[in-house]
Design a protein around this nucleic acid. Structure first.
Length: 422
RNA sequence: AGAGGGUUCGCAUAGUGGUCUAGUGCGCUUGCUUGGAAAGCAAGUAAGGUGUUAAAGCCUUCACGGGUUCGAAUCCCGUACCUUCUGCCA
């Protein structure tokens, strides 16, 4: 959500934002309906003021005169009701359109319609060299009895999986590793375990709805299963007014995550990369409403994720996502993609975005500055670690000729062995 | 899941149809007082919209959404949430 005043004052910015994000949005229609809304509002407010005044007079009058006076006000009542109805209808349409307004992407966001236009901004590490044909993670993990995909599909459905034995242990090890990482090295991030079962408002607030309806599971009671801990974590702070001294607020939140993956039927159909149910540690920051502050925290979130991947010894690169690959509310996004030998390509492990006040307007998250003036906070988030996805990267990069898998050094203490499969 | 109770200005409360323009206490801010503080006294103490050079004014908000009425915090209906009891349950 953007400020309607800002939208009206900067129509060209909004048009340019829609173009760059490859979203169709008619700003003229919005301005027109906003004019109508103001007009209807003025009409209603004037009628209401008149009604308030006259009704008040009835109240002050001698009781025996009241009935007669009240009778005369009946036409006015009808007028007020009509005016109010008018406002209600226009506002409904106005709100629907306001939810479609794209946030303005940063000038540094590359042009492009989809992820093929994302631009590499940095690379870390090198491709592992194999003197044998590397296997994919499905084969490796099945051979090592770390996962069962057949039974997964049978029990859970398409994209279902079981982790077992060392596969399950590896996931737990990653959770412990990332927990220790934040506890000891990033202690300003407070831990949270947050719900995945969330109400519609939370998804509207974070910007996943109304556009992402198809990607979300919904319960028969009307709640949704969230696709990321960001949703509940951000919503935790909704309707709050912070003092500026409390900012920035940093959280590392864990939850199960659910995604329908509608429209991805032919993509990544095998294995752990794209599943319906997974777990994620998510970094979330709320900070002062200042572009430079947002950018600084964006870089910080990126760096945290990079430190984790470096500790795990995974070769990765970072891309700046192009306009068409940004969500409605995102100002800028970096994806981190780590190397997958079986596909000779980088595959996403992290997604790092900032939103300016797009989310906090919808969620009503404010703070008061030192002068007591209130502002909507800025928000940002980045994956810290998502499992089981990253198991693919680990087992493939750490595989050996005999089909065994070395355990990254930082995980050895949590698994109690250096090689899986011996 | 069923039955009951509840939701009011930061907190606690008052308020069952018309000066509620939401009272009071606490808290907070400022001033007076004081050597300084406390106490006391006084004043102030929400958010959003509209409007304006600025303001005044006006509108909305007593969980949310409808309704009744000239007029709703107050009456009616629905929903959400909290809570108690019962049921179920890891």
């Amino acid at each position: 959500m953007l400020d309607i005043k800002f939208i009206r004052e900067n129509p060209d910015l909004i048009k340019e934002a829609a173009r760059k994000k490859h979203i169709s949005f008619d700003i003229n229609a919005l301005v027109k309906i906003d004019d109508e809304r103001k007009e209807a509002l003025a009409l209603f407010e004037n009628a209401r003021a008149e009604q308030n005044k006259l009704s008040d007079e009835v109240g002050r009058a001698d009781p025996k005169d009241r009935a007669e006076m009240a009778e005369k006000l009946k036409p006015l009542k009808e007028q007020v009701q009509n005016a109010e109805e008018q406002v209600r209808e226009i506002t409904k349409e106005w709100q629907a359109q306001m939810l479609q307004v794209p946030n303005v992407p940063d000038v540094s966001v590359p042009e492009g319609g989809d992820d093929s236009s994302n631009v590499e901004v940095s690379v870390w590490g090198e491709k592992p060299k194999f003197d044998f044909a590397p296997k994919d993670h499905v084969e490796l993990m099945q051979n090592l009895e770390m996962a069962d995909f057949e039974k997964g599909a049978e029990v859970s459905g398409f994209r279902g999986y079981f982790l077992k034995g060392d596969g399950a242990l590896l996931q737990f090890a990653l959770w412990q590793f990332v927990t220790e990482f934040f506890r000891t090295k990033k202690s300003e991030y407070e831990f949270m375990v947050v719900p995945s079962l969330v109400r519609r408002e939370t998804l509207l607030g974070t910007g996943y709805l109304p556009q992402g309806e198809d990607d979300l599971y919904k319960t028969q009671d009307g709640e949704y299963l969230s696709g990321t801990a960001e949703v509940a974590t951000m919503s935790y702070f909704s309707d709050r007014v912070f003092s500026v001294s409390e900012l920035p607020i940093k959280r590392i939140a864990f939850s199960t995550a659910f995604r329908r993956e509608a429209g991805s039927h032919s993509k990544d159909v095998k294995g752990l990369f794209r599943v319906h149910e997974f777990h994620k540690f998510e970094q979330v920051i709320l900070c002062e409403a200042n572009h430079e502050t947002s950018v600084a925290h964006h870089e910080e979130l990126l760096k945290n994720a990079e430190e984790l991947l470096q500790a795990l010894g995974l070769h990765y690169h970072t891309v700046a996502n192009c306009g068409g690959d940004l969500g409605l509310g995102q100002v800028k996004k970096y994806d981190i993609e780590a190397w997958v030998p079986s596909q000779s390509s980088f595959k996403e492990t992290h997604s790092c975005s900032y939103f300016h006040d797009f989310q906090s307007r919808r969620l009503n998250i404010k703070y008061k500055d030192t002068e007591g003036k209130s502002h909507f906070a800025h928000s940002l988030n980045n994956t810290a670690l998502a499992t089981p996805r990253i198991l693919q990267h680990i087992v493939e990069n750490y595989q050996q000729a005999d089909g065994t898998v070395r355990v990254p050094g930082v995980l050895v203490p949590y698994i109690g062995k250096e090689v899986i499969g011996k």
